[in-house]
Design a protein around this nucleic acid. Sequence first.
RNA 1: GUGGGCGUAGCUCAGCUGGUAGAGCACUCGGUUGUGGUCCGAGAUGUCGCGGGUUCGAGCCCCGUCGUUCACCCCA
Length: 425
Amino acid sequence: MKYEKIQAPKGVREYLPPESTAFEWVREQLIAPARLAGYQLMELPVFEDTNLFSRGVGESTDVVSKEMYTFEDRGGRSITLRPEGTAGVMRAVIEQNLDRGQLPVKVWYSGQYFRAERPQAGRYRQFYQVGIEAIGLDDPAIDAEVIAIAYQGFKKIGLKNFTLQITSLGDAPSRAAHRADLMKFYKTLNLDEATAARAEVNPLRLFDDKRPEMIAAMANAPLLLDYLSLDASDNFKKVQSYLSAMNIEYTINPRMVRGLDYYTGTTFEFVHSDLGAQSGIGGGGRYDGLMEILGGQPLSGIGFGLGVDRALLAAIAEGVLPSDSFTSDLFIIPLGESAMTSALTIASELRNAAITTEIAFGDRALKGAMKAADKSGARYVVVLGEAELQAGSVELKRMEDGAVTSVKIEQLSRELGSLLSAQRN
RNA sequence: GUGGGCGUAGCUCAGCUGGUAGAGCACUCGGUUGUGGUCCGAGAUGUCGCGGGUUCGAGCCCCGUCGUUCACCCCA
């Protein structure tokens, strides 16, 4: 009887060796600037009460209306796999009263998110994001810092072919005035049914249409930036001047549209040029009403989410991944039973000294073991047999050029330590 | 959700107008005693994604299905 193979669910992206090394590296680069800015880790559940997203992210969004993984748990509760990160953070902040302490609350997070979309290049049903949130203060300087942290993450990877686009969605009065005019405007256009329906829910979406005729039709549409109140406009100018002071290049894109309903004020997006249709590698913005909608105090916040999968694709496209992939420092080849015992002991000691050590397992012939050592990329190799155990010393072979030095077994850690540190400098 | 491309050994692929499968790389072993990379030799591996149909006969044709990929849509 042969069992059928089981496949991974549609559209999930897995990272296996050796690619996983690159994935991990990219994720670390994206997080590093947040850590350096004093943001602290928040580990949250991947599933939440469905209401969190329908209320927080917005019923009218595509994310909520047709892309959520929603199911009933055994207690009859409606549960949803998180499609984004901000709502969960806000829920936890409110629930655990983090907003009762000093503000802003500054947190970062990293994990997988789920959207039931048709998979495509750079678009998966389970994808990885890192993000930060700064909650509780409405200060344009925070907006600028948050943007800068995202920017630095991409720079740290070594990416060049991306642009930062910013805009302001203003405050509530700004948006209301603009929306009214935009509604009037689009009614003068001859829209097909689906497009008109979308416009009815959120007319801003019309700016995101890629069809050339729509882009042309929208050329004279009223822009939200022209409707900003004095406060909002002043705020946006400050954000810009802070960004300039930090030498962060940006372009103002008054037609930028974000897919989540909670955004207000400063909004931004990072777009990479080498990725095909799914070119957004990160984005975020301020959200004035979110916390209150979720039952908390009326505090404002700002944050971003960066796509780790897409950042990795961008890094590959630009060829900026570091080439020195994982290689171990030492490969021990034990010959025989007692040698294996010693090998395990020695390896433990070396690892305690932070020397990456592998062992040739499986009782294979010496030649085969040497090949395995070679393929592992190990810098040094040691053969451990009866003779070596008797003598208490081994021949340390440098794989690069085959040079051999005799080293006492108890000196191995010290000797390797100095050889390796010399090599790294 | 809509549309196009693709699905043959672990990987990249070939397979002519239908006659029951091949290459390169990788892998394992060997080229006499305990030392890798090159070279030489030998070897293992496929329900040709899955299910139906047409046919004397299908990897090649048809239908369905699953997966994948690209685009729309949407977004990270």
